[in-house]
Simulated scan of single mutants.
Amino acid sequence: MAIPFVSPENLEYFKTKQDAQNDATFAKKSELQSAINTAIASVLTWKGVKENVSALPSSGNKIGDVWHVSADSGEYAWDGTEWQALGGMLQASVAWDDITGKPSTFAPSTHSHNAATDSASGFMSASDKQKLDGIATGANNYTHPASAAGAKSAGLYKVATDAQGHVTAATEVTKGDITALGIPGQDTNTTYSPATQSQNGLMSSADKTKLDNLEEAVAMTTEEIDAMFQE
């Protein structure tokens, strides 16, 4: 069902007919506008305000539902299939009780809001805004870069780093790397001779036996030594 629409040109036509005929049976422009408004109000249902046409609901609508669209300051009515722009002639008033979705309470004309804190929501303070403006966009959107050396399993590696300390290369340590430091590359089977009276060495089993057979030395005082010789 298309929504009836009366343009300003149509109204001027009725006014001209009235003047031409000078007949009291013709409605005046104001009377006609009032009649149109009354008729429109009886078939249209005010729903509220949407930001733009694309925000108008595509389902759950009834014929005669009307939304005001802020983007073009116009009204759109549902005709059963699609939304139709009503143009600038819609002047029907809507009773307050007929408006749906309106809030039940309103803030007084003069009121204030507390600044947000760590524990309570609120308005942003000027100091917080200054702090926020001082943070670069995406400053906290950090992703640690992948290692240029790639993933490595456990082991002994020689590594290279860049100026920031990031590992840029890692190669396994080889036997040549170890011997280059002066470390023998294999067991040299070093042997040691028994110690002699003139050369250090390992203790021989004979010396160990002799050492075990010695009585434990006993410390004696000077008085004990003198008494021993006086006997």
Rank of each mutant, 00 (worst) to 15 (best):
P4H: 00
F5M: 09
S7G: 05
P8Y: 10
N10L: 08
N10Q: 13
E12A: 15
F14N: 07
N22R: 07
D23G: 03
A24L: 14
A24S: 14
K29Y: 07
L32W: 06
L32E: 07
T38G: 13
S42E: 14
S42P: 08
V43S: 06
L44T: 13
T45N: 09
W46N: 10
W46F: 11
W46L: 06
G48Q: 04
V49C: 02
K50E: 07
E51Y: 07
S54I: 08
S54R: 10
S58K: 05
S59V: 07
G60N: 01
I63D: 12
G64W: 03
D65M: 03
V69A: 00
D72R: 04
G74S: 09
Y76G: 04
W78Q: 02
W78F: 06
T81H: 02
T81W: 01
Q84N: 02
G88D: 11
L90R: 07
L90N: 10
A95H: 09
A95D: 14
I99A: 06
G101W: 05
P103D: 03
T105H: 11
A107M: 12
P108Q: 10
H111Y: 14
N114P: 10
N114Q: 09
T117A: 04
D118K: 14
S119V: 13
A120I: 13
G122K: 09
G122F: 09
M124V: 11
S125G: 15
S125A: 11
S127K: 11
D133F: 08
D133K: 13
G134S: 12
G134M: 05
Y142R: 12
T143M: 11
T143Q: 13
P145Q: 03
A148P: 01
A154H: 10
V159P: 01
V159E: 04
T161R: 08
T171M: 03
V173I: 11
T174S: 11
I178R: 06
G182W: 00
Q186S: 15
D187N: 11
N189L: 06
N189T: 02
N189W: 03
N189A: 04
T191M: 00
T191K: 00
Y192E: 06
Y192P: 02
S193R: 00
A195I: 07
Q197E: 12
S198C: 04
S198P: 00
S198K: 08
Q199S: 15
G201V: 01
L202K: 01
S204K: 04
S205C: 00
A206Q: 13
A206E: 15
T209V: 12
D212R: 11
N213L: 04
N213F: 01
L214W: 07
L214H: 05
E215L: 11
E216C: 02
E216S: 13
V218Q: 12
M220H: 15
T221K: 10
T222Q: 14
E224N: 09
D226N: 14
